[in-house]
Amino acid sequence: MTTDALPAGPTLAVEGLATHFFTKAGVVKAVDDVSFTVSSGEVLGIVGESGSGKSITGFSILGLIDQPGRIVSGAIRFKGRDLRGLSENEMQGLRGDRIAMIFQDPMMTLNPVLRIDTQMIETVQAHRSVGRAEALELSRQALDQVGIPAPERRLKAYPHELSGGMRQRVAIAIAFLNKPDLIIADEPTTALDVTIQAQILFEAQKLCRATGTALIWITHDLAVVAALADRIAVMYAGRIVETGTTDDVIDRPLHPYTRGLIGSVPSHAGRGGRLTQIPGMTPSLIDLPAGCAFRDRCTVPIEACGVAPGVTSPRAGRHVRCHNPQFADVAP
């Protein structure tokens, strides 16, 4: 593996990314003006409801947006280079090598008719000219790394012969196979049991720390990122509404939406306490109304919310997109 010196600055810097889908029903602004950074060895959690655009953000970085979708503006700087300027061939060279992705449903991500070894070896050989034997050995090591017992046997297996948790470990091993600089994990534990979820979180975090890989962990589950991420970005209706370090955001949420999210997590409500819920539903991303997209569900709307709020930084390291950020402590 080449050890080119990392340029100074974050591994990935997304600036003003906008990805829209031009459907018959109208333009869907799935991702609109999204900016964040993630550095080597750091874990960034992107939190949001389904339909908030967090998965599309991940696919945009990898250049895997299909028709009728298109990245309409913004920059995706990976180690200083804007990925939007790269050709499809150059992107293909980066995918699976420097930037890897883990998908949500382990039952669906592995090709059902190909053996595990085939699916791992091809990942190595797509990016490095190594022989089959060497690629197989790398695959075996990768399976070992993610805590799969008897990797030699698993290599010969077909996906349907493995459990869901085992399959997700295989997918993670494939992601780490070429020692990438960045991994985008799109809800990789949602489909798994809680105990297996915890193990996988632990393995992933350990591997990132050890290899210096930057990790973007996309989830709808605040509890998951709270345990894992260094920093959190909260997404709502295609925009990032709040960012900051994990502890800061969870202990002192500024945006009413983040407050709603935290209030709906059982552990934060206290035993026997009432869970709060955010009223209403995520708005349709077609023809979003002018102004703040959260306005209709907000508990503390003010008149200014008729105009879309800009990003403000009320504290160092904190950014929020709200006219009426809440500074009072969260009720215990």
Binding site: F21, T23, G51, T282, S284, L285
Partner: peptide, 11 residues
């Protein structure tokens, strides 16, 4: 009610 993009099917 919504597809992955959050569109609501017009029905």
């Amino acid at each position: 009610p919504t597809d992955p993009l959050g569109r609501v099917e017009p029905k």
